[in-house]
Design a protein around this nucleic acid. Structure first.
Length: 861
RNA sequence: GCCCGGGUGGCGGAACUGGUAGACGCGCAGGACUUAAAAUCCUGUUGUCUGUAAAGGCAGUAUCGGUUCGAUUCCGAUCCCGGGCACCA
């Protein structure tokens, strides 16, 4: 029979399912003497469109690793699940009225069938879905753990809120507020990113993506749940160093965390009318330029703005604040070229010179970074420079570049004063009192020392990272296990009440008031406190989609546990994840949130390691055949179901790996996959007699001929190394398998053992056809349980190598010589070579360079 | 603007620590089989020049320059493409 991939693939998928071939035993039945390997895929969001050809790319890579590791005797954890809460399903519900729960199940079923049709070796007994009550019970449970924790800055870790020392003599309300100001998950009225089109708020990390889609995002003050991820900024930054992650992902995270060192400096401000004094702190990375400060700027949202503004300026200032509020973030940055601001009428005292400097407000100063106020150093900061020139504020040069002549220095200082020059680099201090003549680095240390002894400021560190906005005004997400009382206080519900499930509703539309659709379900919203019977309202926000994906890799390990989200001992055995493959788009979203949650759980003693993911790998995108991103509107989308029915799952797996390195973006090619289907046909025909369905006659129990044996061992070596080295370059491994098959076609008689080993090598890449041939080779058990072939190092060596002969670095000839021939022999051979002789005839030999097993280069004049 | 990647045949891509550039696949060309086609098998395939051929010359890894006996690989400058950040003081 001809190679019938459809039949073979169905047969083996059924076999694997019935025999639970890929089941990872429960922990108590696991042979713990074997090493573990946890290979994880970023689980998909089961959308209505079904699987995309991009999905199987990363999944095939992890599947190859999983199958390989099993054959190498590892306990392998290779699970799959669903990131099932999310906006797309909710919007489908708004449109159709179909409950998201029903829609989600439909989509999941479709996705699962599709994944099974590609032959992935998942342990489906561990399947999880974030929207399942049995799963999100634990998402809510973890939320409560985070809610009931505070960050102890001395021990640098999260602790149970009960360990927090509460000051004596506080009223009940004060105590409540005090605790709240420490909780790692906290409710606060903060300026948030509101997206009117989506009817929900967004986290900082989510904003760029929505803007790209053309949605608007405006700043709005709202009472929202937040997580104090900022407390973990240092640890999230430092622990990156020990991770085997792509360089650029680490870089993106470092940028996002955005650590900077500098100083906070206190300025005294006096309202000339009321004579009241305020102390305002500014943050700067260049405290050495303090003598160049000619004004202060507060962000329009700064808490002192009202108090320091004098009567005559009030209207202007109020108007400015209102206009700043109206601007979206986008506008505030887009208008950056044209800075605006207003004078408050107040003056600050320079902490060193006691000079009076004006205090202004401007929306180029961000309220949410540093102290929300800056010192203006127009001589050495481009933004300040632009602002100063527009509002005619004076400029003092206080740093000049090193290694310039006196002449240049004079010109430099003049130009700086008039705003023509704005040097932002490091250099030598000038016009700076006791800092004069010092290099910037030294000046920074000296001024900080001075500020600290004079109590006018201190060394400080700042981060760009903001607290994580954790609530959304949606229906299809985890409800918060929190209830609110009439007096404005709130508390967590009892753990025994988890999971807190979603009600059935008539409409999934956002309420339009900035509240989620849950807010209008009175039955659900109105509740009572369990113990006291006091009436209460449920929190109506839901958690963001990231919540479920923050910890799903833990639930796979112990999916049935009803006592805890994952047993600590089981966690200890399997974690951290050895290999995690997914797209780069999650660099600062999922991957920073998941690290954060894991660290909190670590601090609280529920998990055993500092970091959850040891090695991360980003697969590239598969583009359409036209070389651009696949999209419905372009009509260049390739559907995996069609590919499988035309060419088979094995061919698709093989082709996706053969296209190029996993991390690269590469275009799909129908011709290309035909080639891989052709390859599998060649494999089939060289082994199987299509008339008898048995092995071909020329496959015998004979000793393999040396040449083929050597090629086999070289192939084993290459394939093993390509899988093992972590670069995910399976394209070269496959090309070696092709070379091997090409060689088989040239052989008269083939040893069965050679075929056996070759089939083992091919099996992680193309599992169905290899199971079939494995069976025809006389094996009764799945090929997955066979041992990965070993290679004999001696057999991988060539007995002869091609030595190249060069004259003056140009290739002139070559010769096959025995492997390991001494340099002297190589030289003699080269000098004796006809073509080489032509080029050295009559010339003087200056030098001969020879490298063993490589080349000889004769330098002549 | 700043910070990371990356530019190799007609195409996807190979090339160890500086040592034969273009593995493997696609496409293309020629041949075999066939009444024919498809499928399959075999051969060739960077460009260019000399040669009937065998063989050989020259150029060639974005561009220019450098280091070196020797550079796709190391260094410097420039151009282009992709990604990230973008008033973070």
């Amino acid at each position: 029979m001809k190679y019938n991939f459809t039949e073979i693939e169905k047969k083996w998928q059924k076999y694997w399912e019935e025999n639970e071939t890929f089941r990872t035993p429960d922990f108590d039945k696991l042979d713990k003497s074997k090493p573990k390997y946890y290979v994880l895929d970023m689980f998909p969001y089961p959308s209505g469109d079904g699987l995309h050809v991009g999905h199987p790319e990363g999944y095939t890579a992890t599947d190859i690793i999983a199958r390989y590791k099993r054959m190498r005797g590892f306990n392998v954890m290779h699970p799959m699940g669903w990131d099932a809460f999310g906006l797309q399903t909710e919007q489908y519900a708004i449109k159709t009225g179909i409950h998201p729960k029903i829609r989600t199940i439909e989509c999941i079923n479709r996705f699962r069938d599709q994944l099974k049709s590609i032959g992935f070796s998942y342990d489906w007994k561990r399947e999880i879905s974030t929207a399942d009550e049995s799963y999100f019970k634990w998402t809510q449970w973890i939320f409560l753990k985070i809610y009931n924790s505070f960050y102890d800055k001395t021990d640098n870790k999260a602790k149970d809120i009960n360990e927090l020392k509460i000051p004596e003599g506080l009223s009940a309300k004060e105590k409540f507020d005090f605790l709240n100001s420490y909780r790692i998950a906290y409710l606060a009225e903060v300026p948030v990113n509101w997206c009117p089109e989506l009817g929900t708020v967004l986290s900082n990390e989510e904003v760029p993506e929505q803007l790209e889609k053309g949605f608007t995002v405006v700043r709005r003050k709202m009472k929202q749940w937040n997580m104090r991820i900022t407390e973990y900024a240092d640890r999230l930054l430092n622990d990156l160093n020990e991770l085997d992650w792509p360089k650029n992902v680490k870089e993106i995270q470092r940028n996002w965390i955005g650590r900077s060192e500098g100083a906070t400096i206190k300025f005294k401000i006096i309202n000339p009318e009321t004579k009241s004094e305020f102390e305002i702190e500014v943050y700067t990375t260049r405290p050495d330029t303090i003598f160049g400060v000619t004004y202060l700027i507060l962000s329009p949202e700064h808490k002192f703005v009202n108090d320091i503004t004098v009567g005559s300026e009030k209207n202007k200032i109020d108007e400015y604040i209102r206009s700043a509020e109206r601007k979206s973030d986008l506008e505030r940055t887009e208008l950056s070229k044209n800075k605006t601001g207003e004078f408050t009428g107040a003056f600050a005292l320079h902490p060193l010179t006691d000079e009076k400097i004006p205090v202004l407000i401007s929306d180029y100063v961000l309220a949410s970074y540093g102290t929300g106020a800056i010192m203006g150093v127009p001589g050495h900061d481009e933004r300040d420079n632009e602002f100063a020139q527009k509002y005619s504020l004076s400029i003092i040069p206080v740093v000049f570049p090193e290694n310039i002549s006196d002449e240049e220095k004079k010109l430099f200082l003049e130009n700086t004063k008039i705003g023509k020059e704005c040097y932002t680099g490091e250099g030598i201090s000038i016009n700076s009192g006791f800092l004069d003549g010092l290099k910037s680095g030294e000046a920074i240390n000296k001024i900080i020392e001075w500020l600290e002894t004079n109590k006018k400021g201190m060394r400080s560190v700042n981060f760009k990272l903001r607290d994580w906005l954790f609530s959304r005004q949606r229906f299809w997400g985890e409800p918060f296990p929190i209830i609110h009382f009439e007096d404005g206080t709130f508390e967590d519900i009892d753990v025994s009440e988890l999971p807190l499930t979603l009600p059935d509703v008539g409409s999934y539309k956002p309420s339009g008031t900035g509240e989620s659709p849950l807010a209008i379900i009175d039955d659900w919203v109105n509740t009572v406190e369990k113990d006291s019977g006091r009436s209460a309202r449920r929190e109506t926000n839901t958690m963001p989609q990231w919540a479920g994906s923050c910890w799903y890799f833990l639930r796979y390990l112990d999916p049935e546990n009803t006592k805890v989200f994952c047993d600590r001992e089981i966690e200890k055995f399997w974690m951290p994840v050895n290999l995690y493959i997914g797209g780069q788009e999650h660099a600062v979203l999922h991957l920073i949130y998941a690290r954060f949650w894991y660290k909190v759980l670590f601090d609280l003693g529920y998990v055993n390691y500092k970091e959850p993911i040891s090695k991360l790998f980003n697969q590239g995108m598969i583009l359409g055949e036209d070389g651009v991103k696949m999209s419905k509107s372009r009509g260049n989308v390739i559907n995996p179901e069609d590919v499988i029915s035309k060419f088979g799952a094995d061919a698709m797996r093989l082709f996706e790996m053969f296209m190029g390195p996993l991390e690269a973006s590469k275009p799909w090619s129908t011709k290309g996959i035909e080639g891989l289907n052709r390859f599998l046909n060649r494999v089939w025909r060289v082994i199987i007699d299509e008339n008898s369905d048995g092995l071909k006659n020329n496959i015998t129990d004979s000793e393999p001929e040396l040449k083929l044996k050597k090629l086999l061992h070289k192939t084993i070596k290459k394939v093993t190394e390509d899988i093992e080295d972590g670069d995910m370059k399976f394209n070269t491994a496959i090309s070696y398998l092709m070379i091997f098959v090409n060689e088989l076609y040239k052989s008269e008689e083939i040893s069965k053992n050679v075929i056996r080993d070759f089939i083992l090598l091919l099996s992680p890449f193309a599992p169905h056809i290899t199971e079939e041939i494995w069976q025809k080779l006389g094996n009764n058990e799945s090929i997955q349980f066979a041992k990965w072939p070993a290679y004999d190092k001696e057999l991988t060596k060539e007995e002869s190598v091609t030595i190249i002969f060069q004259v003056n670095g140009k290739l002139r000839s070559k010769a096959d010589l025995p492997f390991g021939s001494e340099e002297k022999i190589l030289e003699d051979e080269a000098l004796d070579n006809e073509n080489v002789k032509k080029y050295i005839l009559g010339k003087q030999i200056i030098k001969i360079i020879s490298v063993k097993n490589k080349m000889v280069n004769i330098v002549v004049k």
